[in-house]
Structures are given as structure tokens and as C-alpha cells.
């Protein structure tokens, strides 16, 4: 899979290129918006890793031009401006994800994969966490190679948690995603499904756990 890295800082670009190549990705490197546009015109990329502070303008301006031109490729924006407000407010200008420098390269890779999955461009629609493997297409779970049967709601919840591995899924988000507007919803409906999922993961000796963040939501992570 080929991605384009747009970063003007040469040392960071070299390190990032090496890291992403080590993760099995083919990386082209552009040092400016202009160069990036030349690369984009010549090749097809699965994703764009875009720095905001470029010598010929804000990376977001390039992104806006790409989106206007109908480019649907997945974009992860790297920025030195990482205000909590900016992250909470979400992603403007059409970025699929937003990461503040300095970032964990593992997290960048995970976000890149998640973004590609969301875009449907990632080959293999499977998400793994510890010994859990979840297929996003047929919503099936394997733990240590053994198939674990899940209800539709349980599978939906697990998919939601796994797609955002390492991040909190708020109770509100889970409710909105799992239940339609017409569903009668008990106040502890999500807790019931979390409880059932935990029982099934425990029974199958799953090495990932669903942690309750009281008052906020849930997060799935490999068992310590």
C-alpha cells in the first residue's frame, strides 16, 4: 500500500519514512504543497500523512483544495498545534484524523489503519487486539482462533470499541451508534451488552479487556 508523506522538516520526514516503511508501507515524500500536488497527480495513494506547517502555506489549505477537487483519499494531519480544544472539536477541513507532535509512531500507524478501514480502502477488513480478531464485514469474532458467537448488538459494540482501540468510546456515542431513534432504551442497556461481552471474552480466555470509565464510557485494551 502506497502513502504520501508531506512534511518539510527533513529529519522528521526521514525518520517517519523509515518507520512507515518498516511497517510495510510504500512511502513517497513531498516537502511542500506544490510537490505534494505533483505526486498526487502522478500516482494513486491510499492515504496522505500531511504536516500543517509547510513552506508554501498551511497543509489544511492543500487538503481543502484536494477535497474540492474530489480527492477521497484518507488523510491524517500532523500538527504542532495540538490544543485540547482542537482535538475535542473534531476534525475540520476534511481530515480523517488529527495528531499533535510529538506523536507515538505506533499510534500514528494505528490511526492510519483505522482511517483506511473507515474509508474501505484497507485490504483485509479485520481488526486485531491481543488474541482477538474481529471481521468488520461479517461481524464475526475469533479469540485465539476459536469463533465466539455474538448477537448483532454485541458485535456492533465490540466493532465500535475495536475501531477506536486505545480511545474512550463514550456511553452517548455507543447509544447513538447501537440503537435507532425508535428503540426503547433502558438507562443501563449499554452496560448489559458490555457485561455480556465481558462474559464471552472471559469464557474464551480473551486477552483484551473492556474497561469501564465510570461516568464517561468504555475502552478496550490488551490485558496487562
Amino acid at each position: 500500500m502506497r502513502i504520501l508523506l508531506v512534511e518539510d522538516d527533513a529529519p522528521l520526514a526521514r525518520a517517519l519514512e523509515a518507520w512507515l516503511a518498516g511497517a510495510g508501507l510504500t512511502v513517497d515524500h513531498a516537502a511542500s504543497s506544490e510537490e505534494a500536488e505533483l505526486f498526487l497527480a502522478a500516482n494513486t495513494y491510499a492515504a496522505l500523512v500531511l504536516d500543517r506547517g509547510l513552506p508554501d502555506g498551511d497543509g489544511l489549505a492543500l487538503l481543502a483544495r484536494l477535497r474540492r477537487a474530489g480527492h477521497g483519499l484518507a488523510v491524517v494531519v500532523l500538527t504542532a498545534r495540538g490544543e485540547v480544544q482542537a482535538r475535542i472539536a473534531g476534525l475540520d477541513a476534511g481530515a480523517d484524523d488529527y495528531m499533535a507532535k510529538p506523536f507515538s509512531p505506533d499510534e500514528l500507524l494505528a490511526r492510519l489503519r483505522a482511517v483506511l478501514r473507515r474509508n474501505g480502502t484497507f485490504q483485509g477488513r479485520e481488526i486485531a487486539c491481543a488474541n482477538l480478531v474481529f471481521d468488520l464485514d461479517n461481524l464475526s469474532l475469533k479469540v485465539g482462533g476459536q469463533v465466539v458467537a455474538l448477537s448483532a448488538r454485541e458485535a456492533g459494540l465490540l466493532g465500535l470499541l475495536l475501531r477506536r482501540e486505545g480511545q474512550v468510546v463514550t456511553k452517548r456515542l455507543a447509544e447513538d451508534q447501537l440503537f435507532g431513534a425508535n428503540d426503547p432504551l433502558g438507562s443501563n442497556a449499554i452496560e448489559v451488552y458490555v457485561h455480556r461481552l465481558r462474559q464471552k471474552l472471559d469464557a474464551a480466555q480473551g486477552e483484551a479487556e473492556i474497561v469501564t470509565v465510570r461516568g464517561v464510557g468504555y475502552i478496550i485494551k490488551p490485558r496487562a
Binding site: 522538516d9 529529519p11 522528521l12 525518520a15 517517519l16 523509515a18 518507520w19 518498516g22 506547517g53 500532523l78 504542532a80 495540538g82 499533535a100 507532535k101 510529538p102 506523536f103 507515538s104 509512531p105 505506533d106
Partner: peptide, 15 residues
Amino acid sequence: ELRTPLATLRLEVGR
């Protein structure tokens, strides 16, 4: 300005 070199350092150390 310090963030970009720090990101590079983070990557290099991570390797």
C-alpha cells in the same frame, strides 16, 4: 517550533 524536532526524536528513540 520545538514540536517537530521532538517528534523526530520520538521516532528515532522509538526505533
